[in-house]
Design a protein around this nucleic acid. Sequence first.
DNA 1: CGTCTATGTTGACACTCATCGATACCAGTG
DNA 2: CACTGGTATCGATGAGTGTCAACATAGACG
Lengths: 111, 111
Amino acid sequence: MLDAGTVVPCCPPITAGELSQDDAEKMAAMFKALSDPVRLRLFSKVASHAGGEACVCDISDVGVSQPTVSHHLKKLREAGLLTSERRGTWVYYKVAPPVVAAMSAMLDLRT
Amino acid sequence: MLDAGTVVPCCPPITAGELSQDDAEKMAAMFKALSDPVRLRLFSKVASHAGGEACVCDISDVGVSQPTVSHHLKKLREAGLLTSERRGTWVYYKVAPPVVAAMSAMLDLRT
DNA sequence: CGTCTATGTTGACACTCATCGATACCAGTG
DNA sequence: CACTGGTATCGATGAGTGTCAACATAGACG
């Protein structure tokens, strides 16, 4: 699939040195995934759900149509921030802790 | 100016609960500022510079034209991630720690 | 198999954005 | 004052993106 499960966190804190072109593109793609209000809300709904996991049906009331929700979830998946799994009728999304941790660590300003 | 110095960090870790529409829009705007490779590189150059501060002339070799660099720095300023100050001939940009810290804290997955 | 519900995909459209050349603004220096 | 170098703004353009309606797919159930 397009799950981008191979995305590997890459970078030390920004204070540690300039990003390479490559690293900048990788990290920018992750930030871009969270750069839309609808995606941020979907992401927060999954992350704050019990076990960091939620069914699409539990989180899809964000004010846009169902295809749009699906589209945004795909973006979050491709960015490596979420993973998805089908269990019977429903599809469950859960957060990918390593990737999120990499973003958080990059913005850590402690020297 | 448009410095958006009034942008206030708002949000607890995503694991703590769903974001409101308003908070989602605020945070999305910050993430969007870092969602471009050129901006990320500019930001990392400033953040990794001595004192978290750098002259535009020190950081503008990112492979795009001077107007484009200026445009991206403006975006980072408007998002509240950087502040700027003119000192004589040169303009210096420095990181805005509270805003960056808010983004980092939001992605903290500890429960 | 047929049907129903949940989710993903496609195609189209309006809108935003990154980029550049040209130009304007600002502060020294002569 | 004119001139020069650093930075910001403007206008245009091509690429990218969020959104929806329509359709497709997948599993459950009879």
